[in-house]
Design a protein around this nucleic acid. Structure first.
Length: 158
DNA sequence: GCCAACGTTGGC
DNA sequence: GCCAACGTTGGC
């Protein structure tokens, strides 16, 4: 079977908690701490080689700052079993973990960010679900057409 | 700091 | 299984 074209995603993180510069330094990271079933289920539909836009949330201004690649799937999120973690889930059982995650690789940071405000002025809600008001989901699919347009618009990344 | 949106919890 | 109460996210 021919290699499938990669899908594109948007993944949010607060820069104060984990920002793009930290990922650049570490090169790869486990995207742990997801405690929302819809976001988790999106991660479960990811494929190796898919690309994800890194979105800085809860900051000024919020927006897309870089791009990553999915390199590992279906990893158990270790923070669910760690009582000291903010993401500790006492209801999750070792023999039946509730939360899993993916591993990501840093691909680049855009020389200029694409702010939420700009995204709203360029795309419709159908083209880019994240701009819908009140969308709190931290992992969202991005239609391929929109993703390619964003990449073209942002041009080179470093 | 406010608050809209919305997911989760738990009593019934 | 409904739904009120509560908690969290995240833009503003």
């Amino acid at each position: 079977m021919a290699q499938q074209e990669p899908s594109y995603w948007l993944m949010k993180s607060e820069p104060d908690v984990y920002g793009i510069s930290q990922l650049k330094k570490e090169s790869t990271t486990l995207w742990d701490g997801i405690r929302n079933y819809q976001a988790r289920n999106y991660m479960r539909t990811m494929a190796i080689g898919d690309k994800a836009f890194f979105y800085h949330s809860n900051c000024k201004p919020p927006g897309i700052v870089g791009i990553m690649e999915i390199i590992k799937l279906g990893l158990i999120d270790p923070t669910q079993f760690d009582p000291k973690s903010n993401y500790y889930d006492p209801k999750s059982l070792k023999e039946k973990p509730r939360w899993d995650c993916v591993e990501l690789k840093y691909l680049g940071r855009f020389s200029e960010m694409l702010s939420l405000e700009e995204m709203r002025s360029i795309y419709t809600q159908e083209e880019l679900p994240v701009i819908r008001k009140g969308n709190r989901l931290s992992i969202l699919p991005i239609p391929t057409k929109t993703a390619k347009d964003i990449l073209k618009r942002l041009g080179k990344f470093s």
